[in-house]
Design a protein around this nucleic acid. Structure first.
Length: 749
DNA sequence: TTTTACTTCGTTTTT
DNA sequence: CGAAGTAAAA
């Protein structure tokens, strides 16, 4: 009896298929990780592959850690197989060779927050119109470019007179120049620069191709073009590349993941073997069938169907409540009852929702009823202000060129160095072509600083001292000295009256983490910073306690729970209005995959809820039931959906609008349409909590205006209707339409 | 320089 | 409705 006997036929086939490219399509809950782990072991045991010739790439540290542990358990402790995330793999390679690209090997990694600050500075420096361009947009454009391996020069060439993209190009150049000056790289750079390194220095690539004779990539459906290219280069010599993924679980396209990487794998590698893992070991038949029913509505997908030999189990419970409040109440009650009746733990339950904002109501209820819960939230440990402050100090100590971190801490705690003084120092630095920190050291020579010069000097001495210290002591000691000498605790006490205790505690938690890190074989400040930068908040291990888990569907990927509550299943929330309004269908398919991921998290029981009306941004709106609920075949539901699944208010909405809005006639009342009409009616009837004042349009009869769907047209008439201004527009493309000002949001052109 | 009052603007986010 | 960011006052 060998360990491989515990695999099913398909899994075993995948494990033993070691030569050449292999596409492993692994459905949800099909034993994917087990298969990868066993395959690694099989390579070593049966194919005599040296562990250091194997590379396994994952997306999260959590997945990497789990894989490492399971391999170690199978073959004995500490195997030298490289199991790492894309990003940490690239950092390791870049630390060794980045000098070839003209960077300092002690580079800092900028996270999303650093990027934002940097972009803000650039917008100011380049005097970019903040009405037209927000840092988020520009960073998005840059990130997009880097994900597609488009460098600054290529980007500039591609602009071709487009004014909008021209601004992006200017921002991209300035952004990249500043990164180099600051000795810093962003997340996208890690991949981008690694590919660049391989392309420009074949001798380096050669070395890694020889080293990584067998490569495996997990969650392949989430790779972007840069990652695809990185893998392609590394695997190009031996072509022993095994990619594992599920196109139906691709939910990160909005971040650049390119589903075509997995869909076209056989095109890139014609000799590839394809193995499908379709047996699901997680969910009951009803849950699985429901998921299959929903995902079947997607056009662009690999043909496959999950099956299970588990029992049918409980049917899916669907309940539509009046409000978000009632929904939360219902869910909490249902959890408590189910837990009691079946002798379950709190940790057997999870609440899934589309957006983080939806967690609040549930939290309130849990607090009210004293139910222990764990919120997998956006604001993770390392995103906390006080932690970011400390990290900025450490970053600035490690890399004096890191302006972003320096600016963050120059006046934290308050030293009386404000914007005005900082600007003077910046001008001086620019004039003399020196770094910000060098300028700090020359503060005495800068005109007009007055008394602040001494303060700046003092700060620079302090940083120098920490820098010296960092070479003598561990990160934990360094942190303690830092906290002590800049009187950070006192600063927190003075500035955050009721929250300072938490913050101080967090700071000492960081010290504890630093202590823990210092026990590594080769601790270094750089290493600690790296560890922190590349670890996301959501995979910090806060498990152990018996709690209900609250999380977004995105962060639920890869997890499973006995009981899943999928909440807020409303047309307009999930799928969101953004997706419904968009006219390209890819977004809706991704949204549907997200629904599929959500459903397949459930092992034994799935409860779906939604609210008829919920407050969005302070105003209450009606919502129809999500199309994804309606796509579940009724036989898997506990009870049939109410006929028409629309309540009278919505029926009214529909009829009312048929009379009022002319274009209603020609369009069949599909779900997204009704969602739209619902929103429209909310506007009309003024179903708003807050003071509802209709805004007078900023255009007049005769003006040219732009509509999001209909394009440009001329305003023919403006009528001051009861609730809103009724606008008649002659659109160039579709002719006369009557629209409501608040809803149509016409832009004067 | 720092505090305060007022506007603006809102998905999802593995690293 | 709130967070977060900006403009005027202390």
């Amino acid at each position: 009896m060998s360990i491989y006997d515990t695999l099913n036929n398909k899994q075993r086939e995948a494990v033993q298929q070691v030569d050449g490219p292999l596409l492993l399509l692994a459905g949800a809950g099909s034993g994917k990780t087990k298969t990868i782990v066993y395959r690694i072991c099989y390579l070593m045991e049966h194919e005599c592959v040296q562990p250091y010739n194997i590379l396994a790439i994952t997306f999260t540290n959590k997945a990497a850690g789990e894989m490492k542990e399971r391999v170690a358990n199978l073959v004995g402790v500490g195997s030298p197989v490289w199991v790492s995330t894309f990003h940490s793999l690239c950092v390791r390679i870049l630390r060794r060779h980045i000098e070839l690209l003209g960077y300092d090997p002690g580079f800092t990694i900028y996270d999303a927050d650093d990027q934002k600050s940097l972009m803000k500075n650039i917008i100011k420096r380049l005097d970019i119109d903040t009405k037209m361009f927000k840092e988020k947009t520009l960073l998005g454009a840059i990130s997009n470019a880097k994900e597609k391996l488009v460098d600054v020069n290529e980007y500039e060439l591609s602009v071709r007179g487009d004014r909008y993209r021209g601004v992006c190009a200017r921002a991209y150049r300035e952004y990249q120049d500043t990164l180099v000056k600051n000795c810093a790289v962003d997340f996208d750079d890690l991949i981008f620069l690694c590919v660049k390194l391989f392309k420009e220095h074949p001798e380096v690539l050669d070395m890694y191709q020889e080293r990584f004779k067998f490569i495996m990539v997990d969650e392949y459906q989430d790779t972007n073009y840069a990652q695809f290219e990185l893998v392609r280069l590394l695997a190009d010599r031996y072509r022993n590349l095994c990619v594992v993924g599920d196109d139906d679980q691709s939910i990160y396209a909005f971040r650049g993941a390119d589903i075509r990487n997995i869909l076209n794998f056989e095109v890139h590698y014609p000799e590839a073997k394809v193995i499908k893992l379709e047996q699901n070991y997680r969910s009951t038949g009803n849950i699985l069938n429901a998921a299959n029913g929903v995902i079947a509505n997607n056009e662009t997908r690999k043909d496959k169907a999950l099956w299970t030999d588990r029992e049918d189990g409980k049917k899916i419970r669907f309940s539509r409540l009046d409000s978000a409040y009632d929904e939360a109440d219902f869910v909490v009650e249902d959890i408590l009852r189910t837990k009691r009746e079946n002798g379950l733990n709190y940790s057997d339950f999870a609440i899934l929702y589309r957006t983080n904002a939806q967690s609040r109501v549930f939290e309130e209820m849990f607090v009210r009823d004293g139910v222990p819960y764990n919120l997998v939230a956006g604001t993770a440990f390392y995103d906390r202000q006080e932690i970011r402050d400390m990290m900025a100090y450490l970053k600035a100590v490690a890399n004096p060129n890191d302006e972003i971190s320096l600016r963050r801490i120059i006046n934290v705690p308050k030293r009386g160095i404000g914007q005005a003084s900082l600007s003077k120092v910046e001008d001086y630095a620019e004039l003399h072509d020196i770094s910000l920190f060098e300028a700090f050291k020359n503060a005495g020579d800068i005109m007009g600083l007055g008394k602040t010069a001494a303060k700046i000097l003092q700060f620079s001495f302090f940083m120098e001292r920490l820098r010296g210290l960092s070479e003598m002591v561990g990160v934990d000691e360094l942190l303690k000295t830092l906290i002590d000498e800049c009187e950070y605790e006192e600063y927190l006490k003075e500035n955050f009256e009721d929250k300072y205790e938490d913050k101080i505690q967090n700071v000492y938690e960081l010290v504890a983490k630093a202590q823990q890190y210092s026990e590594n074989e080769e601790p270094s400040l750089l290493g600690f910073l790296e560890d922190v930068s590349l670890v996301s908040g959501s995979d910090s291990d806060e498990y152990g306690e018996d709690r209900v888990t609250l999380l977004t569907v995105h962060s639920a990927k890869g997890l499973e729970f006995k009981n899943v509550y999928l909440c807020g299943m409303e047309e307009g929330i999930f799928p969101g209005n953004m997706t419904i309004d968009s006219d390209e269908p890819d977004g809706m398919e991704e949204e549907r995959r997200l629904a599929y991921v959500a459903i397949t998290r459930a092992m034994d029981r799935l409860v779906i809820t939604c609210a008829k009306s919920r407050q969005i941004r302070g105003q209450s709106n009606f919502f129809p039931v999500s199309r994804f609920v309606r796509e579940i075949p009724e036989e898997y539901l506990e009870s049939k959906l109410p006929r028409g699944y629309r309540d009278s208010a919505e029926e009214f909405v529909k009829q009312d609008l048929r009379k009022k809005v002319s274009f209603v006639k020609s369009v069949p009342p599909t779900a997204p349409f009704i969602a739209k009409q619902t929103r429209d009616l909310n506007m009309l009837m003024g179903i708003k909590k807050g003071g509802d004042i209709k805004a007078k349009p900023d255009y007049n009869v005769g003006d040219r205006v732009k509509h999001i769907k209909f394009g440009v047209g001329t305003v023919l008439d403006i009528v001051d209707d009861e609730r809103d201004y009724k606008i008649t527009v002659d659109f160039d493309s579709v002719g006369n339409k009557v629209v409501y000002a608040a809803f149509a949001k016409l832009q004067k052109v």
